[in-house]
Amino acid sequence: MPLLSINDLCVSIDETEILHHINLDIEPNQIHVLMGPNGACKSTLGNAIMGSPAYTITQGSMLLNGQELRNLPPDSRAKLGLFLSFQNPVEVPGISLSNFIRSAFEQRTGEHIRLWTFRKQLKALLGILDMDESYLDRDLNVGFSGGEKKKAEILQLLALNPSLAILDETDSGLDVDAVRTVSSGLAKYMETGSHSALIITHSTRILESLHVDKVHILAGGRLVHEGDASLIDEINATGFERFTA
């Protein structure tokens, strides 16, 4: 059984359909890449799977481990093992990064975890992401640079340990070093359990240290093509024109 199975999914915003008849299966322990030109609604797909209230599902189904997600609120989807790394993580003043992750962890697992035990675990993860411990006490995303926000997203990914991670342009706007750090964080995630990822990107640097199983091309709200990792090189060489014509 696929981990995620999307069948004939149509998504609307303000009564205008923007994603048309999407079919997508992701097996356990696989990395899928979603690419496409600007305005292809790549982020929309990620957000719709997570349950963003901005979008309406008008048709089709989304199954995670065989369970229908369509009518579940985002927190229930999270508890089933779904995670979305946001393109623009929201700033929440007055809540520290560590307290936030701990609350989320406790809500997802239903377990109570001691403050210092959890902090120690977070500290180990900070090392992988080349982040200073002081981030833990800063307000969630407040005053974080673009790169810091993305690293904080990956920190949450590693701490919350979901079975499927959707990464919405986690590499955009990052410098070379930050992309490498984020990429090694992702590699760490993939090797620590039965994990899958759907990486939404329009660059390919983030994929360098990862084994990509499948590449999907989204254009004009439709999945127009899919292939193996070699498709990435092709796109790097010739762009998306062949798929959008």
Partner: peptide
């Protein structure tokens, strides 16, 4: 939505803000 995507219920998310 951001807070809920991490596993907090709507009420917990609002309370947190």
């Amino acid at each position: 939505f951001y807070l809920m995507s991490r596993g907090l219920s709507e009420e917990e998310a609002r309370t947190m803000v």
